[in-house]
Design a protein around this nucleic acid. Sequence first.
DNA 1: ATTCTGCAAACTGTTTACAGAGGACATTTT
DNA 2: AAAATGTCCTCTGTAAACAGTTTGCAGAAT
Lengths: 258, 258
Amino acid sequence: MADSPVSPLHIVRTQSLASLVADELERMILSGEIPPGTRLNEQALAARLGVSRGPVREAVRGLDRSGLVVTVVNQGSFVRQLSAEEAMDVYDLRVALTGYACERLAGRATPEQLGTLEDMVQGMESAADSDDAARYYALNLDFHSALMSMGGSSRAVRLYDDLGKELTLFRRRALVAPENMRESNAEHAAILHALAAGDAAAARMAGEAHIRGGKRRFATSTPPAGTEPAGKKRPGKAAARGEEEHVQDRDAPGEPTR
Amino acid sequence: MADSPVSPLHIVRTQSLASLVADELERMILSGEIPPGTRLNEQALAARLGVSRGPVREAVRGLDRSGLVVTVVNQGSFVRQLSAEEAMDVYDLRVALTGYACERLAGRATPEQLGTLEDMVQGMESAADSDDAARYYALNLDFHSALMSMGGSSRAVRLYDDLGKELTLFRRRALVAPENMRESNAEHAAILHALAAGDAAAARMAGEAHIRGGKRRFATSTPPAGTEPAGKKRPGKAAARGEEEHVQDRDAPGEPTR
DNA sequence: ATTCTGCAAACTGTTTACAGAGGACATTTT
DNA sequence: AAAATGTCCTCTGTAAACAGTTTGCAGAAT
């Protein structure tokens, strides 16, 4: 009846603590607040989030399955570290996914869908003109999400997003240089053009070329070091006191088991 | 020193109970022992596996993340039910992945790798000749795994396998009709031929065509009913007594939230 | 006869408690 | 002085207990 179905008593338990913890943990990891290689101290995390260790363990187990976290028995869970090669492999998978979505969409894109994409490309152009990297970044995410959603399936969208999260483990932030924005958006336009023309082969090529371009743009603008130095510091006993500390990094195993 | 490195005290804790439970649960689900739509009763599962509810919850949470299980707050976790459309989408994703792996492999396949694949195709041919569906099935899995591993990355292999597990949720078992074996293996040979020729485009086409063929062979040999009837039985109270019962199905929500 | 209400059992979500493993530091030994 | 070793302490892994919710059934009221 009421407009807002809020229970008068306590807030309705609409989702479990474990899922909330999982979301928060994922956010912390993807934002870099907890850098790769860091050990996830269950007790500290539980205390910081105001829950017990149970939900934290469940959340970490979920992140482990989805690839953001690596667990070593009796040693704990660590934020996954992606090697440069693995990151490139992930890019390649996104190439394949994007190409496929574009190819499928070419044959059946509705004028409405094309209009939506067109608007996004326009928006990115204006963002590039005003050097608004943040806005370009957001629109770019939307564009690719829309592409996957229209051409692929919901499963494809989730896959693409998950791969993106893994990439975020490698590159701290999407480095969008001003000149890259224009180049990138030109490729967007090429995709759109092929889609509008209904040319499946061209759309696929354009989609693949775009992600490959992103991979290249990233690879050329990143430090040439093959593997990250990672945290080598050993905090000793003091850090374990945990007064304000919520995470503690030990030796930081890169990829112990997989 | 000894041949079998078994600890004299208790068996070495080489992996956690939660991971063991997760493996066992996955096996149960994929084998059909716990059919889609079934609710996973934590207490019953814990009792059956001889552990407490903690590891079971962690395992279920992991399966939820990997897509085999769907969880509803305060109602429990259910084995996921794939609709026919979703299954087709998963097939399409495998088409894309396989095509991509084949394309990449074409340029750089070593004679050794080609020999390995050749042996598998030969093995499948002999299996088809003797109508040994089980052996064909196993070799087929190996062939595709090898293809992904050689042409793609370890990430691609895992992705492909995970998608395969999801498909298993839909089709109880890979139905390999005798005539299908020959058709399927002819496509394998075509892939191999293109790979040996180093023709990337042809390899991709052949790889894609093969999975599409598998999709078609499955779609034509499956009941035309769009959605599965699923378990509609309401077991009442008797089943909940749990003397030998380890699972209990209630209303079986297909895809409550995603 | 049907529907609604109230009670009870079961199950999920969460917290708390306990045992074993691993690591860091101090001491001892060579 | 350097290496080895012993001890303590933290943290993970697991189990058990506790609170809240949902579900099913029985009985009452219409």
